[in-house]
Nucleic acid binder design. Sequence first.
DNA 1: TAGACGTGGCA
DNA 2: TTGCCAAGTCT
Length: 353
Amino acid sequence: MIEPFQTPRKRAAALLAWYDAHRRDLPWRAGPGERADPYAVWLSEIMLQQTTVATVRGYYEAFLARWPTVEALAAAPLEDVLAAWAGLGYYARARNLHACAGRVARELGGRFPQSEAALRGLPGVGPYTAGAIAAIAFDAPSAAIDGNVERVMARLHAIAAPLRQAKPLVREKVEEMLPAARAGDFAQALMDLGATVCTPRAPNCGACPLAADCVAYRCGVAEAYPIKGKKAEKPKRRGAIFVLQRGDFALLARRPPKGLLGGMSAFPATPFDRDVPPDDWLGFAPCPAAWRALPESVAHVFTHFALSATVFVARTTSPRPLGSAGRWAALSDLDKEGLPTLMRKAAAAAGLL
DNA sequence: TAGACGTGGCA
DNA sequence: TTGCCAAGTCT
């Protein structure tokens, strides 16, 4: 029989002991006793928003190698940062990353603020990220509440309310656990526990240092938490993507600075904010041409809708399609253009990749 | 406040 | 194949 730890402080101590034995080795994580680089912590935290560790690893290494300091990142053109971010998704993160680097480099002397409140004022830094940077980079006793932590707390205390409404209670429960020392380790321990033990499906409660205190586990219903809100259904939309070739070049346009795929390089296309029926497609072509629809359409699922896009291809010899604000990109360099995944799919369908 | 905002992996 | 999920933020 396991004795309950009983107090939040003892729970935290048990969690830290577990962390010392089971912590993950991650590229952005300082070794035991080492000081974390605030720039590296910030960069990794932005990339990790709604994105898996496995996906982030390569991008993190590439960014850090190319832009080793916040000053270097701030000095880079936004287009370069967006191209390097291509494929990671949620491109507002990259725009905010660049804006934030600029502010830190030019207004804050290249140093990230240490307080949670000051961090919170930076572009792209919300409640979670501010707490995470304050704790991990500066060892401040801040709560870093992400999806992992919400799940752990929802189970530990069998919180019945849907997550959105349970946030204040979750925060209260985390804050009463915050240890006086090792704040950064505590924040990462809670997230590691959620990522490796207290998983969404089939949690490994037998390996959990908090199991003795976990209300949901003791009731045999750990997997039933957290309670999920109702999911909005995902509409299906149709559209078209236009791949215009001129010799060994293809026409690329710059997406509007905000909104879906904002700021990214892309082939001209129909608007994606609504379903566009086939009869209307050619009205959105960048120029009149002998457009040929490829037999296989491209399927792509965004967060809030699913797109089926027909890819049209055509060739031209005219130097500049009328009324288009595009540019001619060399086909041999297309993989370096930083195309978002939907556009990479279109390029592949057209035989360009 | 609820919706906008990407992508890839897994059951 | 479909749905769910992963270190959220902005409006």
